[in-house]
């Protein structure tokens, strides 16, 4: 590399570096700091796993939608308005009584931003990226998901071009719930495949 970062320096050094880039680019008219503020706020408050939960709840309540979702994830998710950067090409994989799906990105931290928001630290961490493909059942157990041996575990390794969303199983005893009530049950981790959706406490 042509440049040499001081990587073990205190955070203020990194912050200074970032500030320098932002200042220079703003001075050159290549960046509008207000636009950055808006973008940060959008990802902090508006784009997150509640979007994906709506997709899941719709699939649970509308069989035609579910079929479209499994056939062409990108298009079906776009119907609900959750498209955009890092979600252009989506595949939705369905958990069943026989198959459990789990998503990773061994090369980086590719993740479906429009439906799940930005990835959590553990998803980006070296231990998860390394172990998810060599010991998925062990990882799932650590996350509190105990699967019987006869359930097949499929691990999907995301790429810069293609992202996955897990369609978790609808828990038993939720027949009377509305789509919104169902969406409220769906967690981020259940759509990554490192959790199951729990029935509401009765």
């Amino acid at each position: 590399m042509a440049h040499d970062h001081a990587h073990n320096a205190p955070p203020s050094e990194t912050a200074m570096r970032v500030k320098a880039l932002e200042t220079l680019l703003t001075e050159k008219g290549l960046l509008d700091p207000a636009a950055i503020d808006t973008l940060v706020e959008t990802y902090e408050t508006k784009i997150g796993p509640r979007n994906g939960a709506k997709v899941v709840a719709r699939a649970w309540t509308d069989p035609d939608y579910k079929q479209r979702l499994l056939e062409d994830g990108s298009a079906a998710i776009a119907e609900l308005g959750f498209s955009g950067v890092q979600g252009e090409d989506m595949i939705v994989v369905e958990n069943t009584d026989d198959v459990h799906n789990m998503v990773t990105c061994t090369l980086c931290s590719c993740y479906p931003w429009p439906t799940l928001g930005l990835p959590p630290i553990w998803f980006k961490s070296a231990p998860y990226r390394a172990r998810s493909v060599i010991d998925p059942r062990g990882v799932l157990e650590e996350f509190g998901v105990a699967l019987s041996d006869d359930i097949e575990v499929r691990v999907w390794d995301s790429s810069a071009e293609l992202r996955y969303l897990v369609l978790p199983q609808r828990p038993a005893g939720t027949e009377g719930l509305s789509e919104d009530e169902l969406a409220a049950l769906v967690t981020r981790d259940s759509m990554i495949g490192t959790a199951l959706v729990e029935a509401p406490a009765s």
């Binding site: 990194t14 970032v18 500030k19 636009a35 950055i36 940060v40 990802y43």
Partner: peptide, 8 residues
């Protein structure tokens, strides 16, 4: 700064 890098 993480948000700034992301946003830029």
């Amino acid at each position: 700064w993480e948000g700034r890098v992301f946003g830029m």
